[in-house]
Design a protein around this nucleic acid. Structure first.
Length: 119
RNA sequence: UGGGCAGACCAGGCGAUCGCGUGCUUAUGCAUGAGGAAAGUCCGGGCUCCGCAGGGCAGGGAUGACGGAUAACGUCCGCCGCAGGUAACUGUAGGGAAAGUGCAACAGAAACAUUCCGCCGAAACGGGUAAUGCCGUGGUAAGGUUGAAAUGGUGAGGAGCUGUGGAGACACAGCUGCCGUGUAAACCCCAUCCGGAGCAAGACAAAAUGGGCAAUAUGUGGUGCGGCCCGUACCCGCCCAGAGGUAUGUCGCAUGAGGCCGCAGGCAACUGCGGUCCUAGAUGGAUGAUCGUCAGAUACAGAACCCGGCUUACGGUCUGCCCGAACU
RNA sequence: GCGGAUGUGGCGGAAUUGGCAGACGCGCACGGUUCAGGUCCGUGUGAGUAACAUCGUGAAGGUUCGAAUCCUUUCAUCCGCA
């Protein structure tokens, strides 16, 4: 994770490709959109719209998702573009709850490596 | 003890593990990392580009007691007037209505122009009636509606003059008997001030050209200077096709009208001198997660070129003052 | 970063030279018509009061005799440019 730029979605075209052609899984805290990207690594993006709240709350929600994803990351399959979109309910939550929800969503999307989910 | 007014300060600290931006070291670390409002964008500047930042107008905008502070301001300090409050104290766009124009609903006799209604009176004159203040001239000024009043006089109010105090706005006292509704956050007049755009400003680096028509300087045309006119600067062409594919990198970018401490001046805002410190710089956009501990960490809330203010949001602590009650 | 527009009963939307706020339509409530429902007709409909009073144009102040209208600050929503 030293050089971030390669693993982060940046371009508008990448985003619209995921939005249009990707699949999605929702939960109480966040929606995840994902799609195979044909690369050997996985790229991610964390998004908060104005519906979530003011800038403090938007920053907070992104950081929570990022912290949660950092714990899950070793068990995630390679070769996907994943967008995490925050929902307003995430405000005021603790990290473990967010991590649990994201893990469930990723599992149902089939992105988690099989042997790694002991739940 | 209840209610209120004003002001100041804090915005978590320390430790552990994982993680992020920047800098330095290097291959492992070390240092450092959002605010009092970073906000709203309501004002004022710096900086950059528009050649210089120019002139005029019948054009636009802002401000408005007085004295000061400041780089500047519509800000701040002091002070005067007015308004509110029992008080502490608070608010105040606060020039001009005999330069002109407009507006003033309802009510009222009458709304800025006219002496109006009313009341009184056989006392006088004239007219009229079957008769009567019935009508005109007359007398009176008690009454009348209005947010605001007239009309004779007075008072109150404004204005002028004189004296005293003050740096001044102005205050107080006396005199004159000059003026006569309000509204300029209605148009307007007066005074003072203002060029435009904004860091996506802007600078450098990187990127591909080919063809057709016209043609060497004429004044025109185009572009820019918020509007128009003047003036002035720059550009010399127009069309088609192609390439590029929504935006790359570096700089701008943080030492500044800077913070803190002391002394001096000033009622104060603030200023001068000396010492000391330098502590974010992202660009898909860095501060987080899980705990321990302190009596507690809880509100509003996240830098995006940088400063000075204003306004708004909000948790807590402390200090001073005012009013009321009780007790001594 | 720069600039603009709008906010009025439950809803849409009038009233803007400052002078009775809520015209008009929809909806709702009640009554009538019908065997019943719809349609249609009538009455009522901001809060508040026994009835007045009083308060009400996003919010708070101000100017004015008087403010939905003028001014200042503020909140919310929407839009444009780069």
């Amino acid at each position: 994770m030293r050089d971030h730029s390669e693993f982060t979605l940046r371009k508008q075209s990448d985003f619209s490709r995921v939005y249009k052609q990707g699949k999605s899984r929702g939960s109480r805290f966040a929606v995840i959109l994902y799609r195979r990207n044909g690369l050997r690594y996985t790229r991610t993006a964390f998004v908060s719209s104005k519906k979530v709240g003011n800038s403090v709350e938007r920053n907070r929600s992104r950081r929570l998702m990022r912290a949660a994803y950092r714990n899950i990351e070793p068990g995630v399959k390679k070769g996907y573009d994943i967008i995490f979109v925050a929902r307003a309910a995430i405000i005021g939550c603790k990290e473990p709850e967010v991590e649990k929800q994201l893990k469930k969503s990723l599992e149902s999307a089939g992105i988690l490596i099989e042997g790694n989910n002991e739940k």
